[in-house]
């Protein structure tokens, strides 16, 4: 879980980084340059396959955990007060993850899918920048994306630190660093992602 989680976190950095290029406000030139690179470079394609495998592993692993953990307590407590000893989002990684998965499917269907399909059919890439402009003119889509960013925020807030803990990369001396880094990461990355549809919607990017 931790290993695949960290792998996906790395992906998030790249994804957020490239998306942030749109704020150059050069009509998506820089953005498209990198998007093109990501869309055509064969090493990237190779990594992309790895990414899907990682994601799949993360999901399967998560489902297995969920099942084993559910089975470990066949009779539930009649009365429980978990708020007294832990945060709700740390207990809700499965739900947050499922929400993210639903969003991811929509998201892939919106951008990655049509683009790749086009590539296969015609050998041509589509202009993702324009696709974004079109998608994000719809307020409901923007809201959906913002909600997903919230889910991502909670997921990361627990997941980032948790990954280090699971891998045993935990040391009293550096725990604070991991904790702060995790929190900052959990805020910054979803924030960047959320800004995109918002700034597109308000036509701040052109």
């Amino acid at each position: 879980m931790g290993l695949t989680g960290l792998f996906l976190i790395c992906f998030l950095v790249v994804h957020a980084g490239i998306n942030a290029c749109m704020w150059f406000n050069d009509g998506g030139k820089t953005f498209t340059f990198y998007a093109h690179f990501m869309g055509t470079n064969f090493i990237v394609h190779f990594i992309e396959a790895g990414l899907f495998a990682g994601l799949l592993l993360h999901i399967v692993d998560g489902l297995l955990l969920w099942k084993q953990n559910r089975d470990a307590r066949p009779v539930k407590y009649a009365y429980s007060n978990p708020g007294a000893n832990s945060t709700w989002y740390s207990r809700s990684m499965g739900i947050l993850g499922s929400l993210l998965l639903i969003f991811l499917i929509i998201h892939l269907k919106d951008f990655w899918g049509p683009n790749r399909l086009n590539q296969i059919m015609t050998g041509e890439e589509r202009n993702t920048f324009e696709m974004m402009q079109e998608e994000f003119s719809n307020i409901f889509v923007v809201i959906l994306y913002c909600c997903a960013c919230f889910a991502l925020f909670w997921h990361l807030l627990h997941g980032f630190q948790s990954a280090f803990q699971s891998l045993g990369l935990n040391n009293v001396k550096y725990n604070k660093v991991i904790e702060v880094a995790g929190t900052v990461f959990a805020i910054v990355v979803p924030f960047i992602f959320a800004l995109m549809p918002i700034s597109m919607y308000f036509k701040l990017v052109h």
Binding site: A72, N85, S86, Q161
Partner: peptide
């Protein structure tokens, strides 16, 4: 047949002897 740790931290919070997550 125990469950798996997902680093929730409830154990540490409830441990009567304050055993740490570290």
């Amino acid at each position: 047949g125990f469950g798996n740790c997902t680093n929730i931290g409830a154990c540490e919070a409830e441990c009567p002897k304050e055993i740490k997550l570290t």
